[in-house]
Simulated scan of single mutants.
Amino acid sequence: MIVITGISCKTETTKNNTATPITKEINASETSLKNALTLYASFDNGVHADFALGDSLLYSVPNRKARDSAQIGLHKPGIRISEGAGRYGDALLFTEDSKGNIYYPSKNNIAYNTKNWEGAVSFWLSLDPATDLDPGYCDPIQITDVSYNDASIWVDFTKENPRDFRLGVIGDRTSWNPTPEGPDNENPIFNKQLIPVSNPPFAKGTWTHILINYTGLNTDQGKAALYMNGELKGIRKDIKDPFTWDVEKSNIYLGLGYIGLMDELSIYNKHLSQEEITTLYTLEKGIHDLLD
């Protein structure tokens, strides 16, 4: 905790008319989080990001390969802003698994590095996976230039009840699976790279905080971890596969097959400490506390 001493316009005075110093406490973790922030979408002022080092606009496409058909804003059925339904303020509500994709561009909003890449992704979800989700895999967020199995960072729910919640930090497909056979999501080599959570703490009418933490990617000592409600749920070490992106084609996709509420998406250019993760989880007004 950093303590700064200063004089306020409401400073009390003594009988000698001398000012009494007032101390204001500034949380060092809040300062470091603010300095590391690269993208923030509160969904309180629409779908576009409140803060972004790159493009702040949200885009819709009929499919991933139709980049030339991208439209600014929400042009995908079954998604809308739900007023007052968020963890803080409004939220993004997904009501059906419809065709198309929505995304923020990764360029500058993700601090991608070809030699030593670190960062963190934070957001809140509210749903009952057993009753809200349609059958099949569902990715609330997926960050990649190709797909889930090729230089990608994501979380998903498994395809049938009871559903696990999993973190995938998957390197180049040519590195981890040079001779693929069958679908990768059923491949034991693929599944060994995931961090699964059985009986994850989701429930209707409650909010769950998700934090994806990663460091050392594109080295021989890459590491990724999944936190839920401020607690470490799993960690994967010694990630050696490279993560090769065409950054111009990489996007932060939201709500792939997801049905439920999402709020307070924020992305950081560094691996977060436990203290920073706890601070993020317990912010009284969300990321607005960092920016106000």
Rank of each mutant, 00 (worst) to 15 (best):
G119Q: 03
N213H: 08
E186M: 14
L58E: 01
A130C: 05
K159H: 11
D156Y: 15
L256A: 06
D246G: 09
R87Y: 09
G73V: 08
Y214N: 09
N187F: 02
S106Y: 13
L93Q: 08
S152N: 09
D44G: 10
N213M: 05
D145G: 06
G54R: 09
Y112R: 11
N108V: 03
L74E: 02
S198N: 04
E181A: 15
Y227T: 03
N185H: 14
K233E: 01
F165R: 02
H75Q: 13
E160P: 00
K233Y: 06
L92D: 02
V247H: 09
T179Y: 15
I79R: 05
L58P: 01
Q71S: 13
A111Y: 02
I267S: 06
R64N: 12
L33R: 10
G89F: 03
V247W: 12
G257I: 11
L93D: 03
A203M: 12
F94Y: 08
L125Q: 06
Y148D: 06
E284F: 04
I143S: 01
K24Y: 14
T158R: 12
S266C: 07
K10H: 14
Y258V: 05
H209E: 08
T20E: 13
L33I: 02
R163I: 08
S29A: 15
S198V: 07
D241A: 14
A130R: 12
S250C: 13
F157N: 02
E12L: 13
V47N: 01
I110P: 00
K76P: 15
P62I: 00
H75D: 06
Y258L: 06
T158P: 02
I153S: 01
I22S: 14
R173M: 12
P77A: 11
A70L: 11
L57N: 10
E186D: 11
Y268H: 12
K192I: 06
I26T: 11
K115R: 13
Y112V: 00
I235H: 07
I153C: 07
T158L: 09
S152Q: 04
P105Y: 13
A203D: 07
E186V: 15
A224C: 07
K34C: 01
H288N: 12
K107C: 02
L53I: 01
A225H: 04
L226H: 03
N199E: 00
D90K: 04
A19P: 03
L127V: 03
K15H: 13
F43C: 02
L127D: 00
P77C: 03
N199P: 08
S60R: 07
A85Y: 05
E25N: 15
F51N: 07
Y227A: 10
I79K: 02
Y103D: 01
I22N: 14
G257Y: 04
P129E: 05
P162L: 10
Q221H: 15
G260D: 03
S106F: 12
L58C: 11
